[in-house]
Write a protein that binds this DNA or RNA. Structure first.
Lengths: 117, 117
DNA sequence: ACTCTATTTAACTTATAAGTTAATTAACTC
DNA sequence: GAGTTAATTAACTTATAAGTTAAATAGAGT
C-alpha cells in the first residue's frame, strides 16, 4: 500500500525508526550519529535502510554537507496521522465512557416509562 | 517486533483496516457487516485476517452472540499512539516554525552585535 | 439429523520487509 | 593520487504479511 497514511504508520511501526525520530527531535544529526546507538545490534546498511523508509514516508529530510548527510525531522506526516487519530478521540477519553453509561441509563429509564410504570 | 506501539502502528498501516475502524466508530458490527464493503476486492478469510491483526493489536474486541461475532472499537491503543505523537507536536504546529524563525533572527542579530557594529 | 448462515482454520503462494556482507561512490586530507 | 571517513548500493537470505481456495467449526432453524 502506498497511500500516505499507510506509509506513515508503517514507518512508525518499528522501534528503531521511532528511536531515530526521537533522536532527531533533539536536533539535526547525520547518518553515523543516528546509527551509533544501534551499531551493536545492526549494521550500517541496516541503518541506511531504516532512514530510507523514514525519508520515503517524508518523516525526515536528508540534506548534503560534504560527505555527511544531515537529517532533520519533518512533522507534517505526523500532523496528518495525528489528525486522523483525532476522529477516535472519543473512544479513549473518559468522558466518552461516562456519556455511554449515561445514555444507557436514559434508555433503560424510558423503557420503564414506556411500560406505564 | 511485538512491542505494543509497533503493533498498533502496524495495524493502522493498512487502508482496509483503517476503514474497518472507521466503520466501527459508528457502532458495533459483526464480521460480515465489516466485510461487506470489501468483498469485491477481497475474500472473507482475507477479512478475518485483517480483523485478527486489529484484535491482536487490541484495537477491536470481538465477542460472541450466537453465530455472530460482534466487534467493537477499543480506543486504548490509539490513546497510547496519540500520546506518543504528542511529543512531536511542536514539529507540526505553526508556532514551532515561528519560534524557529525567531531564533534564527536573534542569532543573526547577535552575530552582527558580536562584530561590534 | 439436515441444512443454512456465519466465521474460522489449514495449507499454500507471492510479495515485501528486514537484515546481512561485500563492493562502490563521494568528498575530504595529506 | 593514495588513503580515510561517510554513506550508499548490490546481491542475497530469511521472516513475515497479505492474499488465495478448500475444508472445518459453530450455532440456529426445520
Amino acid at each position: 500500500m502506498h497511500d500516505t497514511l499507510s506509509q506513515t504508520f508503517a514507518a512508525l511501526a518499528d522501534p528503531t525508526r521511532r528511536a531515530m525520530l526521537s533522536r532527531l527531535s533533539k536536533g539535526e544529526a547525520n547518518v553515523s550519529d543516528l546509527a551509533k546507538p544501534f551499531l551493536k545490534e545492526m549494521s550500517l546498511p541496516g541503518v541506511t535502510k531504516h532512514l530510507k523508509v523514514l525519508e520515503k514516508a517524508g518523516l525526515i529530510v536528508k540534506t548534503r554537507e560534504a560527505q555527511w548527510r544531515p537529517c532533520k525531522l519533518n512533522g507534517l506526516p505526523l500532523k496528518h496521522a495525528s489528525h486522523w487519530m483525532d476522529q477516535y478521540r472519543q473512544f479513549w477519553e473518559e468522558s466518552f465512557d461516562r456519556l455511554d453509561e449515561y445514555l444507557k441509563t436514559v434508555t433503560a429509564k424510558s423503557k420503564v416509562k414506556g411500560k406505564k410504570r
